[in-house]
Design a binder for these strands. Structure first.
Lengths: 142, 142
DNA sequence: TATTGTTATACTCTATAACTATA
DNA sequence: TATAGTTATAGAGTATAACAATA
């Protein structure tokens, strides 16, 4: 019997969707920014990984290729991402942010951050540090 | 300048979707269990709150009433929830789990928990405790 | 033939707006 | 008139399966 770890699992199952919802709602409520969480993450990835291929994004986001393709397609249509064939292997694509994309990404990040900061402001610096530590550990696990 | 708290926000924005995806994928991959995360949460809520009204669920999940209504409707169609009008105020509904619903809930919970346990197994008891503490704090904030 | 990505199809999740039934 | 819930509509997120283009 290992109740601590099971309790921990239950708590994660309870709390994670709550936080997701909060972030999503905030992104949507700011009408100047129409980005969803996956879109925000895709832009973030494209910014950090110059001329990334679709498979890279797909792997990073944990999506099946068609889902990633749709996601990118939406961003291309919105003018936030440029998608060009890779000249050395024309099966691959290369994604890069447009200048609008960069602006929108920055804006969306600020909104998401603001939402989180409002909540986290209630924490003491030590608690905040603890949250940070835990997030880093969880990132490694997932 | 408050970089610790901002870093913390960034980490949350990065890690929370990862965990969500992991749970979702696990629930979907087990073909014996067709529940989504919101469905699992709705069943959980209905189990804990006998004869709950739609507005209660809606509030708990942070959904608009139509979204909650659809969610419940799907569960009723799947035979997991019973939805009856409240006799004292016929505008309200009363939701309760069917016996199938109880079984499915238990099963889905086990699957989700198993997914998390596999990951959390890499943590020491102290780390696990720390994760637990942080989740409890975040639950209060969100 | 194997790989990269897209299209086709089908769900669920979620919102807003308009509606129905009851109080 | 106000409240509880549903229906209508729409768009995003996600999957699997089938396909096209390139290597």
């Amino acid at each position: 019997m290992c109740s601590r770890i099971e309790q921990c699992a239950d708590e994660i199952l309870d709390v994670i969707p709550l936080i997701m919802r909060s972030i999503r709602a905030k992104l949507r409520s700011q009408h100047s920014c129409g980005l969803s969480v996956p879109q925000l993450r895709a832009l973030s990835f494209a910014e950090r990984n110059r001329d990334a291929a679709l498979a890279d994004l797909s792997g990073h986001l944990g999506l099946m290729p068609p889902a990633a393709s749709n996601l990118v397609n939406g961003l291309v249509i919105s003018g936030l991402i440029k998608r060009t064939p890779n000249s050395s292997d024309r099966r691959r694509i290369r994604m890069s942010l447009t200048s609008t994309g960069r602006k929108e990404l920055k804006h969306a990040r600020q909104i998401a951050q603001k939402c989180l900061l409002e909540k986290l402001a209630a924490l003491t610096p030590a608690e905040c540090e603890q949250v940070s530590t835990v997030m880093q550990k969880l990132r490694v696990l997932f």
